[in-house]
């Protein structure tokens, strides 16, 4: 706020040393009482309701004439004086910012949408190892599909392996929905993480994130979906996650980077591409 910022928004009021405010009125309270009594009559006596209705009508009448034809106001007298707005603290500190403080932040990174694209393609790629697992282990590509769908069909918990190896349209639809939703969500999360880890997307997406995600699921799946937890093969799960991550990271790596707000703080010569001798990131400086 600049000095003299308290501008006289109501100059006419200030000069006359009064301020116009809505006038006090009993009618809101009477209306509330009337409504309460008219309802209370239902559980007490009809006379109470009649009294309530009378109060409601009277208060509506009174309230109406509080406002029409002109709203009732009161003029409140004002005495002006001088007030000091000051701090009792005499010292003020700012975070020490070194010359290279901001250089830790990237001036370019991948956008969130690149993470979503990676999630979608990674999700498609993940189907391959899942299908191979089903074929090798149960001679059916539908096993993994139905197992995923079982998270949404609690009645499938007691079904046999043979049942899970068969094709079920509702299972395919449910699994497709769950898989698509989860893939996009993971892609979105990954996209949101990218500005923090912008340098090696394939490593991050291909190995670090899948292992973190698997660990998280390993600890929680027993609660979220006991059916899935009882039948899941964690080795193949990790393989499919890594497949997801590698493809996701590859797709992200193909995307064009976008500039972050830190780019704006660079000198004009650098932003214009005339000079490029300033380090953009700490890594590049090193």
């Amino acid at each position: 706020m600049q000095e003299g910022q308290f501008m006289p928004g109501h100059e006419h009021e200030h000069r006359s040393h009064t301020i116009i405010l809505p006038a006090p009125t009993p009618w809101p309270m009477v209306l509330a009482l009337g409504l309460s009594l008219s309802i209370a009559g239902m559980v007490t006596h009809w006379i109470i309701s009649v009294l309530g209705v009378i109060l409601v009508l009277r208060s509506m009448f009174g309230w109406f004439f509080d406002i029409f034809p002109h709203e009732l106001h009161i003029a409140v007298p004002v005495q002006t004086g001088v007030m000091e707005i000051s701090s009792t603290r005499t010292t003020r500190e700012q975070l020490p910012i070194g010359a290279d403080h901001r250089q830790m932040l990237p001036v370019e990174t991948f956008s969130v949408t690149s993470g979503i694209k990676g999630g979608i393609v990674g999700g498609i790629a993940m189907i391959v190892p899942a299908a191979i697992f089903g074929l090798l282990k149960y001679h059916s590509i539908w096993y993994a599909v139905n197992l995923l769908a079982a998270g949404g069909f609690i009645s499938w918990a007691s079904e046999s392996t043979a049942f899970l190896c068969q094709f079920h349209l509702e299972g395919l639809l449910a699994a497709t929905g769950i898989h698509a939703f989860t893939s996009i969500l993971i892609g979105l999360l990954y996209g949101a993480m990218l500005p923090m880890f912008p340098r090696k997307p394939i490593l991050t997406a291909g190995f670090v994130a899948p292992l973190l995600w698997t660990g998280l699921l390993y600890s929680a799946l027993g609660i979220i979906s006991p059916v899935l937890n009882a039948r899941i093969n964690w080795l193949w799960f990790v393989v499919s996650q890594v497949a997801f991550g590698l493809v996701c990271g590859f797709i992200v790596n193909l995307q064009v980077k976008v500039r972050t707000p830190q780019f704006r703080s660079l000198p004009f010569a650098v932003r214009a591409g005339i000079h490029s001798d300033l380090p953009l990131t700490k890594d590049e400086e090193l």
């Binding site: 000095e3 003299g4 308290f6 200030h14 409140v76 007298p77 004002v78 005495q79 002006t80 004086g81 001088v82 007030m83 000091e84 707005i85 000051s86 701090s87 603290r89 005499t90 010292t91 003020r92």
Partner: peptide
């Protein structure tokens, strides 16, 4: 160093 700017007006209700 903290400065002590002054408001141009203060209001006191005549209660």
């Amino acid at each position: 160093m903290t400065t002590t700017p002054v408001l141009e007006a203060i209001d006191e209700t005549l209660e």
